[in-house]
C-alpha cells in the first residue's frame, strides 16, 4: 500500500463526505463496492440522497456517467441499446444504450418490469451485452449503482433473490441527524456542491486499486470467523435462505476492499463486521418475516469473533 494510494482514497472520501453529509460509513461502503469490482444497491426512501451519492462517485473518479430512470414502460432496448437501420449506408448499425458507460445509475430499479430489470442484471453479471447475436463488451471499469425504493411502496416489482445476489453490497442511507439536516437546510452542501467536485482518482489509478483488493491477506483465524458467520446464516432455525458460496465470496472480497480503504494489507475481523450487514442483508431470507438486515445484525451479534482451529 503506497502512501499515494492511501492519500487518493482519503481525498476521494473527503470530497464525497462533503456532498453526502454525515454518512461516512455509507460512503466508505460505496467505495468498497467500487474497489471490489462489485455493484451497489442503494435502498432507501425517495429523497434521501441516493442519486447524489451516485453522481458524486462518478464525479470523484472522473468516470463516464449515465443515468436511466427506470419506469414501468421501460424496455430492455432503452437500457442496452438497439440495432438501427441507417438510410444513407443501407446498413444496420448498433446504437449502444446508456449502459455503455463506466458508471451506470439505474434509478428506482424496482419500478421497471422484470423484463427490463433482467436485461440490466444480465449485463451486470456478464459485463457484455448480446444483441442480434453480436456481443458488445462493456467498458472497464463498469460499475452499476441501482437505487431502489423499499418494496412496501406501491407500483414496484420486487427483485427476486437471485437478482439481488448480483449486487455486492446493499446500503441504506437513512435520515440525516438534526445537525446535518440543519447544514443541508442552510444550503451549503448537498446536490448543489456536486458541480464543485474535482476528479481525484484517475481511471488507471482506480483499476490499479481494484487489482490490489484480492491481494489483501487473510489468515486462518480470520477465515474461521468468516466461516462461522456463514455457517450461522445456514442454520435452519434462523434463516430460510443462507449465504450462497457466491455470497461468501462477496463477503471476503468486500472485507478485503474495506481493509484496503483502511490502509491495511491484511483483513481484521473488524473489516468483516463492517461489511457483513451490507453483504448479507439482501441475501438472507429470514424465517417469520424477519428483515434480512435485522437477521444479519443478529448473526453478527451472536457469533463469537474469537476461536478457531490451528492448522
Amino acid at each position: 500500500m503506497t502512501q499515494t494510494a492511501q492519500q487518493l482514497i482519503h481525498n476521494a472520501s473527503a470530497q464525497l463526505n462533503h456532498v453526502i453529509l454525515g454518512k461516512p460509513n455509507q460512503v466508505r461502503l460505496a467505495l468498497t463496492a467500487l474497489f471490489a469490482g462489485g455493484h451497489l444497491l442503494l435502498e432507501d426512501l425517495p429523497g434521501m440522497g441516493k442519486t447524489t451519492l451516485a453522481h458524486g462517485l462518478a464525479n470523484v473518479f472522473g468516470l463516464d456517467y449515465k443515468r436511466v430512470q427506470f419506469t414501468s414502460d421501460l424496455l430492455p432496448a432503452d437500457v442496452v441499446g438497439a440495432t438501427v437501420f441507417d438510410g444513407k449506408t443501407s446498413e444496420f448499425n448498433f446504437r449502444p444504450g446508456p449502459i455503455f458507460s463506466e458508471i451506470f445509475l439505474a434509478d428506482e430499479l424496482n419500478r421497471a418490469t422484470p423484463r427490463a430489470q433482467s436485461a440490466l442484471l444480465e449485463a451486470m453479471e456478464e459485463r457484455q451485452v448480446s444483441i442480434d447475436g453480436e456481443s458488445h463488451h462493456l467498458p472497464d471499469p463498469f460499475f452499476v449503482i441501482a437505487t431502489q425504493n423499499p418494496q412496501s411502496q406501491s407500483g414496484t416489482f420486487p427483485l427476486p433473490e437471485s437478482q439481488l445476489d448480483r449486487f455486492l453490497l446493499r446500503v441504506s442511507l437513512g435520515y440525516p441527524t438534526p445537525e446535518v439536516e440543519r447544514k443541508l437546510l442552510q444550503g451549503k452542501h448537498g446536490r448543489g456542491s456536486l458541480a464543485a467536485m474535482q476528479t481525484c482518482i484517475t481511471q488507471e489509478q482506480l483499476i490499479a486499486l481494484q487489482h490490489q483488493v484480492p491481494k489483501i491477506k487473510m489468515t486462518d483465524a480470520l477465515l474461521d470467523y468468516v466461516q462461522r458467520l456463514i455457517a450461522q446464516t445456514r442454520e435452519r432455525d434462523l434463516c430460510l435462505l443462507g449465504l450462497s458460496p457466491r455470497g461468501a465470496l462477496a463477503l471476503i472480497r468486500s472485507a478485503q476492499s474495506w481493509a484496503l480503504i483502511q490502509g491495511r494489507d491484511h483483513v481484521l475481523p473488524e473489516d468483516v463486521q463492517a461489511v457483513f450487514v451490507a453483504v448479507a442483508g439482501h441475501r438472507l431470507v429470514g424465517r417469520r418475516e424477519t428483515q434480512g438486515d435485522q437477521l444479519a445484525r443478529h448473526i453478527l451479534n451472536t457469533v463469537d469473533v474469537i476461536g478457531g482451529v490451528r492448522v
Binding site: A221, L268, P269, E270, Q273, L300, N301, T302, V303, D304, V305, I306, G307, G308, V309, R310
Partner: peptide, 30 residues
Amino acid sequence: YEAYEHRLYRKFCKQLEKRGIKREPKQTAT
C-alpha cells in the same frame, strides 16, 4: 479443538470477567 492462542485468549476474557468486564461475542480483540 481450539488452537492454543484462542484458549489463552479465553482465559484472558475469564480473568477480566472476574473484574466485571464481560466480552460480548461480537467484540473484536481491539
